[in-house]
Design a binder for these strands. Sequence first.
DNA 1: CCATTTGTGTAGTATTTACTACACACTACG
DNA 2: CGTAGTGTGTAGTAAATACTACACAAATGG
Lengths: 121, 121
Amino acid sequence: MGREASFGEFVRSCRELKADGGEKGFSLRKLAERVGIEPSYLSKIERGQQPPPGEETISRIAEELGEDPDVMLAMGGKVSSDLLEVIRSRPRLFADLIRELKNTPDKAVLRLVREVRDGEW
Amino acid sequence: MGREASFGEFVRSCRELKADGGEKGFSLRKLAERVGIEPSYLSKIERGQQPPPGEETISRIAEELGEDPDVMLAMGGKVSSDLLEVIRSRPRLFADLIRELKNTPDKAVLRLVREVRDGEW
DNA sequence: CCATTTGTGTAGTATTTACTACACACTACG
DNA sequence: CGTAGTGTGTAGTAAATACTACACAAATGG
């Protein structure tokens, strides 16, 4: 129940911030409509009464709320399927890399990302 | 049907190699017993008539056949849950890294893995 | 030739996932 | 005051997931 609740709480707080922030159109019902799900379903999700929805739905919620889809997916206990695809294409390589980086501090990983991006090798 | 079939074919060929290689105890039934599933189920999986089994079962099959679990999971269209856990713990970091590495050649990724392992930073 | 072992066919099932549909009560506002 | 919009409760469902149980026919082996 822990993860479901925190996911829902996060969605709700994001939505209420948007709503209070003058940007109208973020009542529970409006968000549900924009995302394409039933209001009652979203209500249950926000209160942790229902587990987080599917990947597509989480991504659409994140998009509507201006949040990072990967972060929101993570809170929902999922990982974007395009990332899974990358891993599955070269499982040995990525399994090793990710396990190696498991206990590596953020800073070092971040540096690695930049190294790769800038092609410093 | 493509992925399911190739997964099954791979399992079958591994098993038959083991069986023909003198190492007894790798008939379909024996493997099924060792893994803890019904023979008929394994039979259908090997022939691609049934989609690949769950993560735990795939891992046990790989273990029994002396194959790499990550590779076998990948063939079954899955990614080990411990890797997912690592990604979910720092989604922004790992999402960026993995997408960055999507089109990076094996050699370069491998070098990265070694760099991390040897702590060259 | 009889018992065992082998792979396979058929017919299910329990659980999880990812939702919908509709009715209800409360509040707000014009 | 009514009506529009708000969140929520109840009661479902279709499809996917991950299997089991049992029976059968062909091959194998002592």
